[in-house]
Each structure stands twice: as C-alpha cells, then as structure tokens.
C-alpha cells in the first residue's frame, strides 16, 4: 500500500503546495520509465502463450507458428535491415492494423440495422438523434436541407453538452472516491487478481 499511496499523495501535495517539485518530477519520470517496462510485459506474455501452444501442439498451433514466424522476421528486419522494416511497417503492418479495425464499420451497420427496430420512446429518441447527427456530420446532409446543420448542431451543443457534463463530473467524483478509498486502504485493484 505504501508504494501506491506515497507517490500518489506526494504528487497531489506538490501540486497544491509547490513543495518538492524536483521529487515530483522524478516521480513522473519513474512513471514514464515504468510504463515502458509494463508495455513490454504484455508483449512477452503473448510471446510465451504462443510458444507454449506450438511446443504442446495445441489446437490451431500452425497459426501460432505463423505468428511467431512473422514476429521473428519483422523483429529481425528491424535490427538488421531498416529499409525492409520501414517497407513492411508501411505496406503490411499499417494496412493490416486498419483492416482489422475495418470490421467495426461493417458490424456497426448490422447493429444499426437490428437496433433500429424502435420498441419504446427511449430507443426512438436515441435513433432519431443519431440520424440527425449523421446528417449533420455528412456534408450531403447540408446539401439536402440546411436545417440539419442547425438541428444537429443544437443537439450536440445543448442537450448533449449537458449530459456529457454530468458524465464528466460523475467520472471526476469517481476518481476522487478512488483517491479516498486508497488512502483508507480499501482500494486493492492495483494488486491484480491475487
């Protein structure tokens, strides 16, 4: 708990009193370095999972082998042949990353197809507002009727702002509640699932 509470309290103390700026800067540097180490933990965990899968010849192990082969060749290129690494980064890695996110677009449309069967007033309000904002965002909406810009803009700037302001305040209160809980020793989520 000391490792959790002490840096947290010190950063807040320094912000409101101005005392100990150098130490607070050092803590921020700790955060930057530590986050890099933890960034690698995830990578190593996935690496270990797939190596074990190949070794034990578990279900779908050939795909894990492809994964490891891709990993090894890309990492090897990064250290041995930078131009090749850059080429693969721009022409294979980036397209594949975007393509895998491309499913979001397709499944959004199917979700809207099924979700737009209005069953009650709340769903009707949600769908109507969504349609108006779609026509606000798309330039063709303004070409069809300039009122979509006015109406969509009003929905975004007035009722939506009020709602999101409530959400932001709620989230902020949650952060403060976490702060108080950790001071009281009630917050243990940072210990993981142990």
């Amino acid at each position: 708990m000391l490792f959790y509470v002490a840096p947290m309290l010190f950063i807040v103390f320094e912000y409101y009193t101005g005392v100990g700026s150098n130490a607070a800067s050092a803590l921020i540097t700790w955060g930057i370095i530590l986050s890099t180490f933890t960034y690698l933990i995830g990578g190593f965990a996935i690496f270990r999972h797939h190596i074990l899968k190949i070794a034990n010849k578990n279900n779908d192990w050939p795909y894990s082998a492809i994964l490891m082969a891709t990993f090894a060749s890309f990492l090897g290129m990064a250290y041995l042949h930078q131009p090749g690494y850059q080429w693969v980064l721009e022409n294979v890695y980036q397209p594949l990353t975007i393509l895998m996110f491309g499913f979001v677009g397709f499944y959004t449309v199917t979700a809207l197809f099924r979700g737009s069967q209005v069953r009650n007033i709340h769903a009707g309000v949600l769908i109507t507002c969504a349609v108006l904002l779609m026509l606000y965002n798309a330039p063709v909406g303004e070409a069809i009727w300039p009122g979509f810009q006015t109406l969509g803009g009003w929905l975004k700037d007035v009722p939506n702002t009020g709602v999101m302001r409530g959400v932001v305040i709620g989230v902020a209160i949650g952060v403060l509640a976490t702060f108080v809980r950790s001071l009281l020793g009630l917050e243990t989520s940072y210990l993981g699932g142990d």
Binding site: V109, S116, I127, M134, A138, P139
Partner: peptide
C-alpha cells in the same frame, strides 16, 4: 474520402428509416 462518407451516411439513414417504419 468525403463523397464516400456522404453516400454511406445516406445509405445508413435510409436503412434505419425503412427498418423503423417497418417495425412501427
């Protein structure tokens, strides 16, 4: 890209309108 954005938005709005009217 913006032409395609406009067209896909129109498609989705039309789809939602058809389904909503059908379910109502």
């Amino acid at each position: 890209f913006i032409d395609a954005q406009s067209m896909i938005h129109l498609y989705i709005v039309a789809m939602i309108a058809v389904v909503s009217i059908w379910s109502l």
